[in-house]
Design a protein around this nucleic acid. Sequence first.
DNA 1: CACTGTCATACCCGGTAGGTATCACTGAGA
DNA 2: TCTCAGTGATACCTACCGGGTATGACAGTG
Lengths: 289, 289
Amino acid sequence: MAVDTLETRELRYFIAVAEELHFGRAAERLGMAQPPLSRAIQQLERRLGVSLLERNRRGVSLTGAGEVLLHEGRAALDATTAAARRTRRAGGADGPGGPRNRLVLAVKAAGSHELLHKLLDAYAAEPDAAEIEVLPCGIGEQEGLLRDGRADVALMQAPYNSLAGFDSEELLTEGQIAILPARHPLAARKTLSLADVSDVPDLPLARWPRHGTYPPGPGPEIHDQTQLAQLIALGRTVAVIPDSARAWLWAEHTAVPLTDAPPIVTHIAWPTHSHSLALAGLIRTAAQL
Amino acid sequence: MAVDTLETRELRYFIAVAEELHFGRAAERLGMAQPPLSRAIQQLERRLGVSLLERNRRGVSLTGAGEVLLHEGRAALDATTAAARRTRRAGGADGPGGPRNRLVLAVKAAGSHELLHKLLDAYAAEPDAAEIEVLPCGIGEQEGLLRDGRADVALMQAPYNSLAGFDSEELLTEGQIAILPARHPLAARKTLSLADVSDVPDLPLARWPRHGTYPPGPGPEIHDQTQLAQLIALGRTVAVIPDSARAWLWAEHTAVPLTDAPPIVTHIAWPTHSHSLALAGLIRTAAQL
DNA sequence: CACTGTCATACCCGGTAGGTATCACTGAGA
DNA sequence: TCTCAGTGATACCTACCGGGTATGACAGTG
């Protein structure tokens, strides 16, 4: 085989080993036995002429080239499965008799709710609108969904989401508010600054994941909106979130505008190389909102 | 095999057929016989549950799903070979004893010459600079080189190059000049407007390829700088190019500033997901120029 | 109505991916 | 020091499947 060709199978195998750093567990995850996996990785290293893994006593670690292949390979594997998924969708293979024209729109669950509603209504009114499947996802999951083809287009909020590697169009800029327990003293204020809410001893700031990891700090780690709402209602934390979140405030919550928080810009984003007519229509509709 | 997995081999095969629209020629290009290729495509269609090609009398054409797979598949295949190439480079597999740390920088041949010189000098002065291999390329080839891993980073000029899908940093903004045959009447002017040079009957404007194709028009199609220079010297054409091109003017050329041409912005650009230390150093150096 | 061009089918073969059994090595305890 | 557990590598076998050749089916053409 050519020296700069990789089979998808080889990528899957290497990524499994590189993530587990253990041939046995990687083989189990791949649903195969350990020896053929060892051999496949050896063949890969031999063909590339590069050592990818350091087999030292008690374990495996990545070489520099291995790090590169792990990152580049993930991107390549995502692109490959994206190709398969989008092709299947384009062919209407989702279900028998399913619509031939469908877009999957990834949205952070309960985020940008009002904007999403307006967008869907406006697009549905278009003459030859495709069917839009709304795919609710966790915080910061949109990038991965676009990359591996589970979604075609997403609503993202800068700077929470990274727009790097996607094309995008600005939709909405909004300020941020602090959401506090209604009974907390700070809830009585007309406005607050970031400094006011970031160092309250009895009310540590909630922490959101950024690119898969949580920043350090005393506050609770947040996975979804509901959990956050409950923790605030219980008086355990305070959150800084976009203005449109007022839509889901509870009775025990109080929203106070923040004077100095960075504005949140909601974008509609899609993979750079996309060029389907349905997607173009959706983007045009969104840009006219 | 899982229904949303594609083997690299299948992608190569399908893309060949989709580009040739002819099984026999595609098989020849792939260095194999036609029957196994036909069978492979059938298996692919069956596994995806999607029809990709329309085999009608006298030829083959793409279905909608086929179009999607052609585009997405090209991106995926590029990403895969990029992974292989960059891994090999990271492991120093380029040559025996070759340096472990090397970046390939794609530059339009003879473009941004002065800037490139400054960049290379400044970077070489850095304490732990990697080796930079300058890869001269044709007009608008940088994008492909970055995508399939033949290059790690490129100098691109907006709006000639499309920065979509890459991260980039602005380096230089410059105006444009018209390069004319020295003996032409227009060469005597102090300044010109785009209108002045775009409709001169005896001096049709040279045409550059944009994304692989040439815009229509009477002027000659330009492939490289030297050819352009010669055609201008012969009095056959006029070109509108960035100010820094004064560096390679011939004696028979005259440069006249254009008052209303869009400015050219040279960027340094790299694949979004890159994160090597060497690349980060080069970008930092470039941003400080 | 032969003839040509094109893709599909039938059938065969060899390479290789994957399985099982086992080895070689190393670190941890008793 | 001597097991013993844990890990990756090796040896060997089998079955599948990717690829080749020969040929068929069909349509358009002179």
